[in-house]
Structures are given as structure tokens and as C-alpha cells.
């Protein structure tokens, strides 16, 4: 069975200059109920890895540096 991947725009964006994941922060990854955020180990910044978002915003509200923004997913917007 062959598979293919399809790219989509994701609703969460992270300001790399503000994100302090490289200093050990994982708050947004910890709180997300859908577990769709990860820390990109290459550049030490949080990243949305799966387009499965409830636009519920704990990741944004709990981020200590206001680095993360939740937009309404494009299909819903």
C-alpha cells in the first residue's frame, strides 16, 4: 500500500525570537490536550506538528513569553 503526504497551513505559530524552549521550556507542549505541539530540537523552538487543533488556547495563555499565537484553523475560519 503506497501513501503520500499532503501539506496544510497550521493554526499555531511561534515567534522564534521569543520562544525559550532552548532554555528548557515545554509549557505549551505539556498543556495541549490534543498533543499536537513539539519542540523542534534543531532550532529549539516550539512547533505545531499535527493539524488537529481545537483552537482552545491554553498553549497561548500559559506561554510565559507570549511567543505563541493560535489562529482559527483555515477550514473553520
Amino acid at each position: 500500500m503506497a501513501t503520500a503526504s499532503m501539506l496544510v497551513k497550521v493554526p499555531v505559530s511561534v515567534d522564534a525570537d521569543k520562544c525559550i524552549a532552548s532554555k528548557g521550556c515545554t509549557v505549551c507542549v505539556d498543556v495541549c490536550p490534543l498533543d499536537v505541539l513539539v519542540i523542534d530540537i534543531n532550532n529549539g523552538v516550539a512547533l505545531m506538528q499535527y493539524d488537529e487543533c481545537w483552537y482552545c488556547t491554553p498553549c497561548e495563555v500559559d506561554c510565559p513569553t507570549h511567543a505563541l499565537t493560535v489562529d482559527i484553523p483555515y477550514l473553520v475560519k
Binding site: P33, L34, C53, W54, P73, L75
Partner: peptide, 13 residues
């Protein structure tokens, strides 16, 4: 109706 699997009324967890 948006077709977005996680755009549910309930928390989709």
C-alpha cells in the same frame, strides 16, 4: 460541517 475533524463542539480528546 467545516469538515475539520477537530473542530467539534466537544473537546476532541
Amino acid at each position: 460541517s467545516s469538515g475539520y475533524l477537530f473542530g467539534t463542539y466537544e473537546n476532541p480528546t
